[in-house]
Design a protein around this nucleic acid. Structure first.
Lengths: 371, 371
DNA sequence: TTGAAAGCGCTACCAA
DNA sequence: TTGGTAGCGCTTTCAA
């Protein structure tokens, strides 16, 4: 393929091609970027010769430098990619985002924001991207600051709330309140809450009021606030509702964190898990403890991820439109990249989806399924 | 923050900073790239002033052009990101890859290789990446060709086999043979196979010998060949073993594809699903058909993805070291980027992991669990 | 419709 | 230890 008469193989560039054809470099550039700037015939000739020589078109980096655009949007995810992608909710959301960005030929450049490693920030600061999407990170995470240093357009999903930065959010408090209200309506009074991490310190176990108030994951602060107000509206004192924090937002961690809460005389009859991933963990822990769901224990999740309907039993959960929100992130990014200043989007609506993981209290008789 | 005396706010560059400090641009560059080329004191001064001015360091694109490196590795996935990432096997693999690349500060630039759209190829060809990783794509996929046009280092996972291109593979035939052998050893004689797509045409249903032979997904060709040889070694004629093709590698599609195979007098007593995703679909379809697994139907999967052990029942499956393979891809990419020519890696070992989705034939008596 | 020329911002070589 | 300088390959005015 590489037919170059003189044996050498100089890197193919616009200039090489132009000289080969005896025309100007600008014209070759136009063949790729502004077809209307030259005759169709000439353009054909150029493209044909390019194919012949194996020239793939203008160099992406040089073009990027000149135009100030690379065709990539950075995505900052909390912790490793592994945990992020093993959450079906994240996957759905990313899918919506990717689809929307595809319209402009933009790819997704993934970077994990490991908080522990100061040196891991450089790759983020030095990433060649046109914009950043921050996917649900805690307050004060250094990776977010690193992503901001270039002053590129930036959009946040859920958290952190940053002044002047478009946020694609939902009404977390209302969602959590709906979950609690549902459990209360089913007659439950001994409630429990399984929370996602409140801070990125991997702490696990009971989370008192102080810990709750100090949450740097704002989503959790909002959801707990919503849950609290719903509980108190029903006359339940929030400080008597056990809140257990999971070390991570995955089923294993959730099961581990909640295990201790499930036994004992005053164990909750109903649990609000702040994500479907955690709810899955509750299901697992309940099974391990010999509890039937929903007969012995009612569970409500949050997200309505694709795992929710096929869980066993199918999860009653708070639905948020994940794919749409991903798309909305993409719409915002595209607008920002066009130089527009889109209005701050409204929080997306959430609502309870009733399946079969929550039932009236005492509906299954005593918990005698053990052993 | 943007303190610029003369009101204007010219884009901050190395030169700006250099002039501000009354030193040369090269020295500022060195402060970032070769700390040993200047005194620690001067470097400190430069960095401090940069922070003061809000200069984030050398521009990634300009640096990319100059160095010929952007710090991103392209990842080409088949179809949309959604399907790719909803497969736990892919997620584990990507996690291994990302971790390995992180050592060099490389991010992952995701691009979906939609075969249908000729214009969708430009973003791939024009992506600013230092290398490409092709994740299990079919023969002749135009996106792979697009990724190759820049002559950047390229590494393939599983398929397609490309001359001169490092391939990180496994012994697919041996894995499939082990699965079939296991079922045969359990006494099963009426076998069936649920295949991943054989071609990217979303065809679903029985796949005859011709279709099997024409598979452009080489992984499937290899696995079917392995299965066939194991079957024939036991005296079973392969053309009597029903092979059903799924339209996609996900549980839903798998359940849909296999449903018809599960009923009838001569329905298989054992099924080899060519991926865990598909095996999950079989489990679902079996339940829908009132069949108990493994009593009425034995199932063996492939991958040992993180979904396998927690399936109900836990999947007997062929294990491949996903995370390690992801890491190996990363190792190869890094070596290639260093200009080395690493030896073609050995196929990773696979072996059967026996859990409880496969049992001796007839072990559960007649299939009387229906209704 | 085509071409000439001016940088985009940076790094790496070489000289001081 | 510091600085001058030559491009990396391209796009885009502007003029022909």
């Amino acid at each position: 393929m590489q037919k170059h008469p003189d044996g050498s193989s100089p890197r193919l560039t616009l200039l090489t091609l132009a000289q080969d054809l005896g025309i100007s470099r600008a014209t070759v550039s136009n063949a790729y970027n502004r077809p209307d700037q030259l005759s169709a015939a000439l353009r054909e000739r150029i493209l044909a010769r390019a194919a012949e020589l194996g020239f793939a078109g203008p160099d992406p980096m040089a073009r990027g430098l000149r135009r100030g655009r690379v065709g990539a949007v950075g995505v900052l995810v909390d912790e490793g990619l592994s945990r992020a992608f093993s959450d079906p909710a994240v996957v759905d959301l990313l899918d919506g985002l990717a689809r929307e960005l595809q319209a402009d030929g933009l790819g997704l450049l993934l970077h994990a924001g490991r908080a522990d490693d100061e040196a891991a920030l450089r790759p983020i600061q030095d990433a060649a991207v046109d914009a950043w999407v921050v996917l649900s990170m805690p307050d004060g995470h250094p990776a977010v600051a690193a992503a901001r240093t270039r002053n590129r357009p930036l959009v946040v999903l859920d958290q952190p709330v940053l002044p002047g930065v478009p946020l694609v959010g939902i009404d977390d408090a209302a969602g959590a309140a709906a979950a609690i209200a549902h459990l209360l309506a089913l007659g439950h009074r001994r409630l429990g809450v399984l929370a996602m991490p409140l801070r990125p310190d991997r702490q696990e176990g009971p989370a008192g009021l102080a810990r709750q108030a100090g949450a740097t994951y704002q989503v959790m602060r909002r959801r707990l606030a919503g849950a609290a107000s719903a509980a108190e509206a029903a006359g339940l004192s929030w400080d008597r509702v056990p809140v257990v924090e999971s070390a991570a937002n995955d089923p294993d961690a959730g099961a581990r964190a909640v295990a201790g809460l499930l036994t004992g005389d005053d164990a909750p009859t109903a649990l609000f898990a702040c994500s479907d991933q955690l709810a899955l963990g509750v299901l697992r822990a309940a099974r391990a403890a010999g509890l039937r769901v929903p007969a012995d224990l009612s569970v409500v999740g949050f997200d309505d991820s694709s795992a929710a309907p096929s869980a066993d039993p199918p999860l009653t959960t708070v639905r948020q439109p994940l794919r749409d929100r991903g798309r909305e992130l993409g719409v915002l990014v595209r607008a920002l990249l066009r130089g527009e200043t889109p209005p701050a989007p409204e929080p997306a609506p959430v609502h309870l989806v009733v399946r079969s993981s929550a039932a009236p209290v005492g509906g299954g008789g005593a918990a005698d399924a053990r052993g």
